[in-house]
Design a protein around this nucleic acid. Structure first.
Length: 110
DNA sequence: TGTTTGACCGGTC
DNA sequence: CGACCGGCCAAAC
């Protein structure tokens, strides 16, 4: 059995993101830390949204910008999902990103 | 097997 | 503020 696949680690963290919260690719990468980089998180998410039930819409880049919204659906599906969870999204960016930011390193480390 | 790319990040110009 | 570069690692071609 393959214990720790790259994607699995990312999936777990993303699934642990509470509603109304978002995190960044770099944060996940830093949390997993062991040889993971922000790009790998994005790569994993690409497979995630296609194959797995991973709330990738809760993952944005360091600026809170919905970088992956184009990958979600044709429309603003990603934004709508976030707003439905109580996250304010304006101009493809998460409103009060600092408040909404859920840092796995901090939250899970405690 | 080597090159290209990818939903990034931080720094620099 | 927009553009570019290096890093970091794995999948796709």
């Amino acid at each position: 059995m393959k214990a720790h696949n790259f994607f699995d680690d990312v999936y777990e963290v993303v699934k642990l993101i509470p509603e109304g919260r978002v995190t960044s690719y770099g944060a996940i990468a830093k949390y997993l830390g062991s040889g993971l980089t922000a790009r790998m998180v994005g790569w994993a998410m690409n497979a995630a949204h296609t194959q797995m039930d991973v709330p990738a819409h809760r993952v944005v880049n360091s600026t809170g910008l919905l970088t992956g919204k184009h990958h979600f659906g044709v429309g603003n599906e990603m934004q709508e999902l976030l707003e439905k969870e109580g996250i304010i999204v304006q101009n493809d960016k998460v409103k009060d990103f600092s408040q909404r930011f859920w840092n796995p390193v901090t939250e899970l480390a405690l």
